[in-house]
Design a protein around this nucleic acid. Sequence first.
RNA 1: GCUCCGAUAGCUCAGUGGUAGAGCGCCUCCUUGGUAAGGAGGAGGUCCCGGGUUCAAAUCCCGGUCGGAGCUCCA
Length: 638
Amino acid sequence: MINVTLPDDSVLEMAPGSTIGDVAAQIGPGLAKAAVAGQVDGETVDLGYALERSAAVRILTARDEEALVVLRHSAAHVLATAVRELKPEAAIGFGPAIEDGFYYDFEVDEPFTPDDLEAFQEQMVEVVEADHAFERRRVTKEEARELFSDDPLKLERLEEFDDAEVITVYKDGPFLDLCRGPHVPSTGHVTHFKLLSAAGAYWRGDEKRQMLQRIYGTAFFKKADLTEHLERLEEAKRRDHRHLGKQLGLFSTDPRVGPGLILWHPRGAVIRTEIENFERELVQRHGYDLVYTPHIASERLFEISGHLENFAESMFGAMDVDGVAYRPKPMNCPGHIAIFQGAPRSYRDLPIRYAEFGTCYRYERSGVLHGMLRVRGFTQDDAHIFCTREQVPEEIERLLDLVDEMLRVFGYPYTIALATKPAKALGTDEDWRHAEGVLASVLSARGLDYAVDEGGGAFYGPKLDFELTDAIGRKWQGPTVQLDFNLPERFELEYVGEDNERHRPFMIHRVLVGSMERFVGGLIEHYAGAFPVWLAPEQVRVLPISEQWEASAREFVSQLEAVRVRVTLEARDTLGARIRNGELFKVPYMAVIGEREAEAGTVAIRMRGEGNKQEVMERGAFIDRLRAEIESRAPTAV
RNA sequence: GCUCCGAUAGCUCAGUGGUAGAGCGCCUCCUUGGUAAGGAGGAGGUCCCGGGUUCAAAUCCCGGUCGGAGCUCCA
């Protein structure tokens, strides 16, 4: 007999060769029915997995996260089964579960059409109704070659196995796949799924290889979960910054300007300006000096920095200026370094912190451009800190404060990752260990949780990555803090120490928003276009009930303008239509003035999205409240 | 960059090898309004650009530009 240890530490005695399904049945008939897979010593396996030795076993049901991965992987097989039934000539590639769903790659002569997708979805229903068991078989490489003799992509994969390795294949009905598993017991378990899109994908992710056709889908155990997921996709679409940006008049691009180059319209420029003003105030309070550096520089600079050597394919081409090659800058660091080197520096000057809204240009392949989120010209809220080795911990501390203060204002929760030494790296092991240790100990000293991104650092130094979570749970790249062992060497940075000797300073790169373009694009989606009052392009819209009260309304508008509130007067159309437009434009406050208000010197305030909660206030009181809300930069996402 | 898809009024989109359409927006007039669309009339188009096929192309074909879904890459 063997001992099966369950998660509650109870132990079952089972005959060797018992399956996970047997274990579930032993525990209870309810669990036997609910079980979809299992875990043996932490590894996810089929329900049919036979236990030969004592082990820790966990039964997975629809409630377990790990089971969802199994289900989705099985759904990918169901998709491939269906595709093969309708298009037997399709060669099969890979079909894994991914975050939020699954995909399967096929090699076909004709790309899939939306009609094909619908046909596959329907055929999948047939496959599910047929309730084919997922049968696992262990085969030798030789046998596998035989089984997949008609599947060139699988044969290619097969050759990567050792000759002696045991290979597993899974069969559901007519469909056989080279696959490690595990799977749900039968196709009948895959009940709630939806195919979402088809697109090209290179075989093995290699752009030199042939393009396959990838079908994406998602699957859930419960219909309600599927519905919710599809609704979340709809919600994301509704928040798309490209649509909202156009609708709300925030930004555009123009083919005559060129792809990936953003035109900030007045309403969008207001948002950016407010953020910049906020940051200027913030960094000056945190001991930075503001600087400006040119958008282009002689190639000499980028030779020294190493950008021409390492980053050239992301740089715009050279322009000839009096026989000298110039380039648009892809980063701001060399310029800041040049300022640092503009005078001899003493240890008494350090730390020196330079901050700039620096506009950079990078050549991005046309296919990666995306609204404001991925562009070719963007402005970074970049800063570089030059300090002594001893000052690094305190500078990191200050940066953590700065990041926290800044993200709090936008209402982003965040997580921190420490990215460590990659395989190919500059600098000694000792430098790296020391730098990583400094970052880690500062985080720990503050009691901050962080993940370690092993090998995720840049070749020139470790970094802290801050990941933001937006209002609908999506992750965004946030601030980064990057130590640099490289540029101080390349530029031969120096300061004179207490000992009257020359020393090399440490250099820290950091961005908070990263690029204004990307950040504002993200903010549009985070707030769904309904910006908090301090950022709202139009903060108050004043609506006189009829022409009679326009004079009174104008007076109120002047009062608001006098305290620099962004306000408009809207007197056309019926009140209902104006209210509707104000809501569509997501104006935070609408101020209605009619007979009652004009005579009493009050105003009827309607808050965005809360039409049923109106409030009649003294005008002065409203202005005070509004000013307080603006000055505190209250993150009232509505 | 690659595969596929798309481009028609300011916006969202329908449509077709033979006279260019809707809703919203805009303009004018009527209506003077109490919290998400009052009414009538009107203006507005190089159907993305270039070439080809055709008696005839906005429609079919080829090339380009721009956009989209992905792959790969990234602030």
